[in-house]
Nucleic acid binder design. Structure first.
Length: 578
RNA sequence: CGGAGCGUGGCGCAGCUCGGUAGCGCACUAUCUUGGGGUGAUAGGGGUCGCUGGUUCAAAUCCAGUCGCUCCGACCA
């Protein structure tokens, strides 16, 4: 392609509100343009990168014996009603009516659509296992898009789905997809800095899930990582080794005045007890099946509550903090709350509270706490489970080593869905006994645009992007320098350009009438891995100059041998990504 | 949804406090100049100052409302 044909513009300045590195470079290099909040156009350079990424994903899906299909973006409400998600999912789903007043939506994922296909097309266990994928637009009306392509509303996702007759078959297939993902991230240049962690199954439901996280300080997820063993988990699901507590005998409950002691720190200091001996109450209103329910959660004073665990435990689609009025309506006093005597609430407590004894807890009375509060004797819990948000330094659940923490951006995930969708949509096959069985499903996603953004985060310097060759919009850029008295530079460059194309190399020819500095700066900015400079100076000696974007040295190359030399460098760069 | 900020030519910004001819840099067009790391000069084109309403002789500027965008938080496969 010739530079003059690119619909793009490199920018010297970016909107001051573009903060994320990948956002700034993507705008400055002319890869994308915003149209609305979280909605972008891809310009030629950006689209070429996106397509390169997609093709790598296609190749790796083929390795995992998954086959490409394409499903609609606009979907009828019916299939979403079958699985119940029409009501479960809130405003994140974009809904509309067609001319016949039928409820429709923009697909935010495709479990329903693919399950519908499967139930019509798969009748027998003999057809299983089967795996399909698509690379398709999704729309999620995010409450807050941000950071350029990292968090958007309209995006492209590679989403795959597998169908199995039994759990063993899924268990066998899942690691193959896991490996395909590892290969894909390696090939796109994120290999060294992307890890898989155990993750929440969230709105997808299911039994086991992993997220592939690109490690980045600006990431939205907190990850807990054990340096000793291989434990790695998203904070949403991370667990830890609980210390064994020598439970004392229950002592009689006793009310004490604790004026102006609303926080755990204040209470612990005032009563001179460790925070581990206090109980902290946290209040939420959970939405389950369209019904609001007051939730009274209790964790130990030194612990933080994990809302994901709480939401899963009470089976809530949405959680919001309760207001002071709602807390009082349930019979508790904000700042001095106790589960004792609370009405119309789901009381859910962490294991540490259930196992320990003689906690300090509020007295549901302004300025008073109770000593020696005990589960079972003084109040009954509706649910006892793990509610702790694991923090850095807590002991690893496998080996008790102190956990480290880091931030990451989710670029992909894999889920064992089980029968979550086949059940609601009655997707069955006959097994070898002629008996109908719900299909067991897995789902596998990768956000293509987000992956592109992460690649920029990983590969750039002060002058611009440094594309890994596998996803670079072009493998080679030829910069022609024509002086006032052209001496055949342009002709030589065009000849080289055509020869490289004939050799199967992706080439960009910058033939614009611009000064050298402009062309060099643009070349650095858009980040093509191999730059060839054709100028009168070298041409007189039958030479051109070659420079790799990630290196600072330049070298002269004989024009005759240039093609072979470029092919050599391309091969080397690709090998570097394996 | 809570907090903060911003909407003035394609981009970056000034002007607003104290109402009175809409400005600067980049980009764009033309001519000249320069020609291996964002040359220099001259002359141009391009803006309902987000929108609506109000105050006023007069509104980019003051007031109210509204829409949009960004950042922090909540939220989120």
């Amino acid at each position: 392609m010739k530079y003059s044909q690119l619909m793009t513009q490199t920018l010297r300045e970016v909107p001051s509100d573009a903060e994320a590195i990948s956002h700034r470079w993507a705008l400055r290099a002319g890869l994308i343009r915003p149209l609305a909040a979280g909605i972008f156009s891809f310009l030629p350079l950006g689209l070429r990168v996106k397509q390169k990424i997609e093709n790598i994903l296609r190749e790796e899906m083929a390795q995992a014996n998954s086959h490409e299909i394409s499903m609609p973006v606009v979907q009828p409400a019916e299939i979403w009603q079958e699985t119940g998600r029409w009501n479960e999912i809130g405003n994140e789903m974009m809904r509309m009516k067609d001319r016949g007043d039928r409820d429709m939506c923009l697909a935010m994922t495709h479990e329903e659509a693919v399950t519908d296909l499967a139930r019509h097309l798969i009748q027998s266990y003999r057809q299983l296992p089967l795996s399909v994928y698509q690379i398709q637009t999704k729309f999620r009306d995010e409450p807050r898009s941000r950071a350029g392509l990292i968090r958007v509303r309209e995006f492209t996702m590679k989403d795959g789905y597998s169908f199995h007759v039994d759990q063993e078959s899924l268990d066998e297939y899942y690691p193959k997809m896991y490996e395909a993902y590892e290969r894909a991230f390696k090939r796109t240049g994120l290999g060294g800095s992307t890890i898989a962690v155990e993750s929440d199954t969230g709105m997808m439901g299911g039994t086991e899930a992993h997220e592939f996280m690109y490690l980045n300080d600006g990431g939205e997820d907190t990850l807990l990582i054990c340096e000793k063993c291989d434990y790695r988990a998203n904070r949403q699901v991370a667990t830890y080794t609980r210390e064994t507590i020598g439970a004392e005998d229950a002592k009689p409950i006793e009310e004490v005045a604790t004026p102006n002691c609303k926080t755990i720190e204040e209470v612990a200091a005032f009563l001179n007890v460790p925070a581990t001996q206090t109980a902290k109450a946290v209040f939420f209103v959970g939405l389950t099946g369209g019904e609001e329910k007051f939730i009274f959660a209790v964790v130990r004073g030194d612990h933080e509550l994990n809302e994901t665990k709480l939401g899963n435990a009470v089976n809530a689609q949405e959680l919001r903090p309760a207001t002071d009025d709602e807390i009082r309506a349930a019979g508790a006093e904000p700042g001095y709350a106790s589960p004792i005597g609370v009405q119309n609430a789901t009381i859910i407590i962490d294991n540490a509270i259930a196992q320990g004894t003689n906690f300090v807890s509020g007295a549901n009375k302004e300025g008073y706490h109770n000593l020696n509060v005990n589960t079972g004797r003084d109040f009954e819990a509706d649910i006892i489970t793990d509610l702790v948000a694991v923090a850095e330094g807590m002991p690893c659940p496998n080996c008790a080593t102190n956990l480290g923490s880091t931030r990451g951006i989710e670029v992909g995930n894999i889920f064992k869905l089980g029968t979550n969708y086949s059940k609601g949509m009655n997707a069955t096959v006959l097994d070898e006994n002629g008996k109908a069985q719900l299909m067991i499903m897995g789902s596998y996603g990768i956000g293509v645009g987000r992956l592109l953004a992460c690649i920029i985060e990983e590969h750039h310097d002060d002058n611009g992007i440094i594309w890994p060759i596998s996803v670079a919009p072009f493998q080679v850029e030829i910069v022609v320098l024509t002086g006032k008295k052209p001496a055949g530079e342009l002709e030589a460059a065009e000849k080289l350009y055509e020869a490289l194309q004939a050799a199967g190399i992706d080439v960009l020819l910058d033939e614009r009438d611009e000064r050298p500095g402009v062309k060099f700066n643009d070349a650095d900015l858009i980040g093509i891995p191999i730059r060839l400079t054709v100028g009168a100076r070298g041409l007189a000696n039958g030479q051109i100059e070659m420079k790799l974007r990630h290196e600072s040295d330049r070298s002269d190359v004989a024009l005759d041998g240039a093609i072979a030399r470029v092919q050599d460098e391309v091969a080397k760069l690709i090998n570097g990504l394996k």
